[in-house]
């Protein structure tokens, strides 16, 4: 039960990072932290029984791969954004308004 609280805390830390930080690299790191938290939650569910372990492994496999795919494309977009705007600060990128 304690472990579940820590895993949820990890996930919430990642969400906090995504919501409040201004630097794009930090936001991408926040996505990675949240993803790790989710994988941890699934592994903890997997520990409760024999059959659950297989499904939990599969769910965490899926979360990891899709999460890493999204992170890769986010990195590519951030690199181009840095080239265009000269900064990685999200509050500077306000060309679209209204």
């Amino acid at each position: 039960m304690n472990s579940l609280i820590f895993a949820v805390l990890l996930f919430l830390t990642g969400i906090y990072c995504i919501l409040t930080k201004r630097n794009l690299v930090k936001i991408i790191l926040g996505i990675t932290i949240s993803e790790t938290g989710l994988c941890l939650i699934t592994s903890l569910i997997g520990n409760t029984g024999g059959d659950n372990k297989k499904i939990a492994e599969m769910i965490s496999f899926v979360i990891l791969l899709t999460g890493s795919a999204v992170t890769l494309i986010a990195i590519a977009i951030s690199v181009r954004l840095y080239e265009k705007y000269g900064t990685l600060d999200v509050s500077e990128m306000k060309k679209l308004k209204g």
Partner: peptide
């Protein structure tokens, strides 16, 4: 376009 994309992605 890139700004809109990163916002949508996150």
């Amino acid at each position: 376009e890139l700004e809109a994309t990163i916002k949508y992605l996150i």
